[in-house]
Design a protein around this nucleic acid. Structure first.
Lengths: 396, 396
DNA sequence: CCTCGATTTGATAACCCTTTTAATAACGGT
DNA sequence: ACCGTTATTAAAAGGGTTATCAAATCGAGG
């Protein structure tokens, strides 16, 4: 939404002011004015509104230097709370955040992949929300301003519909209305890639850059695009399906039904296949447990185990190519790599990938980009969904 | 630049009003208001300004229907003129447009690919500009408001520098300042992909959609991304290098030095290689003349020549995959295919490609996208550059 | 030690700009 | 003559900026 009306301007500026405080940042009115490129008076007015609404508060700390001390402002903690739900193929994670986006509660439950009935899944989501609320003394549903739920697959945010969730075989499941039947909290939906990218924009390095790409390496892979400071959604909110772009024409089959997809080469399963290829009898292999194997592999790579290092090298090649594709296509200033696979390896993965990215990127876009590992400690999906819920249901 | 100040708003709205008139469109004040989502009064004010500035004019045609006849408005033809220059590896094309963006003059000269001295190339550009002006009776340089020059490779618009032009081995050539030494017309630089996309946004179907992708198939290939109605440039104006994304890991060598690039499979040279593969002795092959061969091939395909059809089918596969990559990655509403290779084949190319795009796209983004052949008859590069020059140098 | 000025920050007022709403004028048909 | 549609104009609302003043601190000088 580009502002056309003067009223949109204020709303946009209000969001922008609020965003500059995410992550516990402490700023003065002057700082905010400089960051937004507006006058101090305007920043002061908006901050006044937000303070009156109970969203910002002065931390009376005075700064020396001669002259009137600038009053430092921060987000005010406390109610109303926001719940972010990460609904995935095998689990539901509900996390509750206070107004300052500090996580104050966590609830997790497994979901059998075969448990694919919409009503049942929605039930699990509602249960986990009630679970995370119940886990906090003195917090009731009345203190929760809203819930953001991340759903796998294609999500229609406006309609509140899961357009397509391949893992459950869903097509056009009216998630929001099913949810509302069981729980009367305000709710909004989105796709995990969007949530992660949003989290990275608000709490990660991506916030400092106007053009970035946030890559998620997990069981599945995908990315989010930030262009001119805004999250790119595409026509139907499904931009970022990098995992299903072709990297190797007529290559390995992908579980999406196509062949040669990026995900078939850099998804967690592909990583384990590589390890098996390098050493079929590797003791690092934990049968039936992807996450454990990846953890052992990462640990072995850190102590320079030759099998692990060789596996990492082989993994880095398709990954680097696919990242170079994103660099060439989108020319970002920052490329953040996150997701549980990336987190397991940490910096060594980036170090292995960077030369490949360089090899397959054009010089100019390569020189313009910085590769970085995500520094978000919490679950970025629920965090991002909580931010979305905050901006939708709380921000005036 | 997102509007933050109320003044930016008016400027943005003025551009938007003007854009709604490109392509000879005739609209009433009410139409413009509806298109922009502003009130009739505002549209009237802006139109008043633009009329006063001599950019719009009423075509007194009255529409019946009872009531005061709506006055139809159009862009006013005539001076000041704009020149768009398409500087490519083998030619310079300068075209001159009147204010209504109607082409009123054309000048073309070949440039030897070995003629790579910056001063010499700039000289050719200046000569071609003077040539196109001289070709018009009653038009002098004083009537030209500005020039837009498209340069191959990476272009720094703000700095007026050709950051990297691989075909000439340029690195950091200060094009604008070289130009200014020889010609005192206002000048701006951009990359041809951006120019084409802009032309498609203003004069093609892409103008009717907020999220589109404009693909250029020529000797080299690339694309432009329109997201939320705005051209995506990336950090250093080099977004859209789709031609150098990897489609076949460790595949054919590309002249960029990498391997497996899209361009190595869907560039004009690759098309001719396919033809040679299908029938090494094909009479369609015109040695040493890419364009002529493609023209004959396209003509043969139209009359269902088996060799041509087989070549087209084989060409459609990597092209469809690469287009599917763009669809999955960007989720556009419209995908416009242009460039001289595409123009030679016309609709049959799209018909051959569409099933491949479908095969390699995810269902949801595929269903959201429409494939279309470019309908811009003129050279979109010079047209786009002229538009850019108009909006920079003429629009208040 | 106190006072005063310099300096920086915050708040307020006046002004400009943009948009909207509403009223008025223009114009053609019935 | 009346009505409906379109354009214009005036008034009002809202946003942002600059200018100005008040507040709070530091440091110099008495």
């Amino acid at each position: 939404m580009r502002p056309r009306l003067s009223g949109d301007l204020r709303r946009a500026n209000r969001v922008e002011v609020m965003r500059s405080f995410y992550g516990g940042r402490t700023l003065t009115r002057g700082d905010v004015a400089a960051q937004l490129g507006v006058s101090v008076a305007t920043a002061g007015t908006i901050i006044g509104e937000l303070t009156a609404a109970g969203l910002l508060a002065e931390t009376q700390s005075t700064r020396s230097g001669g002259g009137r001390p600038a009053s430092q402002l921060t987000m005010r903690a406390g109610a109303p709370y926001l719940v972010g739900v990460d609904l995935a193929e095998t689990h539901v994670i509900a996390e509750i955040f206070d107004q300052a986006m500090t996580r104050i509660g966590h609830f997790q439950m497994p979901v059998a992949p075969t448990d694919d009935d919409p009503d049942s899944v929605v039930g699990h989501v509602v249960d986990s929300i009630q679970g995370v609320i119940a886990g906090l003394a003195g917090v009731s549903a009345a203190d929760v301003a809203g819930v953001g739920v991340s759903l796998p697959g294609q999500v229609d945010r406006e309609g509140g519909v899961s357009v397509h969730a391949p893992n459950w075989g869903w097509h056009g499941v009216p998630f929001t209305s099913l949810f509302t039947k069981r729980c009367d909290l305000p709710v909004l939906l989105d796709n995990p890639l969007k949530a992660i990218t949003l989290a990275e924009m608000m709490f990660g390095e991506a916030g400092d850059h106007d053009d970035s790409v946030v890559v998620n390496l997990g069981t599945g892979v995908g990315l989010g695009v930030v262009a001119e400071g805004r999250l790119l959604r595409g026509r139907t909110n499904s931009a970022g399906e990098w995992g299903h772009t072709v990297l190797v024409a007529d290559g390995l089959p992908c579980h999406c039904g196509s062949r040669g997809c990026v995900e078939a080469y850099v998804g967690a399963a592909a990583l384990l296949d590589l390890l098996t290829e390098v050493d079929p009898d590797s003791p690092l292999l934990v049968p039936g447990d992807q996450a454990a194997t990846v953890a052992k592999l990462a640990e072995a790579a850190r102590r320079a185990d030759p099998v692990a290092v060789a596996t990492l090298e082989r993994f880095a090649r398709p990954l680097g190519m696919a990242l170079a594709n994103a660099v060439n296509m989108l020319n970002p200033e920052l490329l953040v790599v996150g997701g549980w696979v990336s987190a397991a390896f940490g910096e060594p993965l980036l170090a292995a990938v960077e030369p490949v990215v360089k090899e397959f990127s054009l010089t100019v876009p390569y020189d313009a980009v910085t590769l970085a590992a995500s520094r978000i400690a919490d679950n970025p999906v629920s965090l991002g969904m909580a931010v979305l819920a905050f901006e939708t249901f709380v921000l005036p």
